[in-house]
Amino acid sequence: MPHLYLPIAGNSVNVLFIFAVGGAVGLLSGIFGVGGGFLMTPLLIMLGIPPTVAAASDSNQIVGASTSGTLAHYRLGNVDFKMGLLLLVGGVGGGAVGVQIIKILRASGNADFLINITYVIMLGFVGGYMFIESLQSLRKRQVVHTPTRKKESGYGRLIKKLPYQTTFVKSGIEVSLFLPLILGTLVGILSAIMGVGGGFIMVPVMVYLLRMPMHVVVGTTLFQILFTCMGVTIMQASTNHTVDFVLAVILLAGSTLGAQIGAKISRKIAGDQLKILLATLVLLVMVKMLFDLLLPPGIMLSYKGGH
């Protein structure tokens, strides 16, 4: 079995195994059209990679995985650069805050705990949301419903009151400049802490909070994630020295290949049943991590900073 030594993780890994992990997560990503990072980091942690190295190296591989997607959507005209840039500015700022949070928590020995608890909450939220949405979608097929006019929500009225309202032509919406900045910052913080591109958080944020059309959401998310993850990777490398480039390259090779194959499969077998399966997988990962926090650990001591 071919092994490669990971200079930053300080251990060797089976190349084929890590490639397969990258490929499997990329395949799921390609089939379901959602991010793979939120699955990748916990899987790497389960394989014995120190959590902080797993999170930082995953950010690095997301740079490569989102590059080809951004390029394709740019060609199709699905990228709202104005919105993307505002989200990006917020994302980079949030990323810097997130890296500092990790640095402080590493010093106090709580970085792993924060990564784990953030994962449990986010996986629970995304998995639960997807599961419920898929079930509702399945039921809607059987029930004929009459269209009703929706009353504007409190949130809708609130965002209209914010200053510096501006039009985003590509998305066809008018919102305050501050809104994408604030939302970008929040996603950037989570991205740095969790080592994910933020796609699975950003997509619902753009659809439900910014109210952008779905086809523009996908292209703009990829554009924003690409640059956010570049920022996070450089900051993690310079501040915490936790980016393992060798690990990132193996994952990247697997995930980009898996994502492309998955995208082809999705055209043939996409459906709500598959969405439910993915939601179940996400919830299973969440339950595993939750058990790790609730059950007594096998060893009561650990290295500070997750190593």
């Binding site: 591989q61 740079v63 490569g64 995985a65 590059t67 450089i234 480039f245 990132a248 980009t256």
Partner: peptide, 9 residues
């Protein structure tokens, strides 16, 4: 690391 990832992507 970012440049190599970009090129690979």
């Amino acid at each position: 690391a970012c440049l190599v990832a970009l090129m690979a992507g």
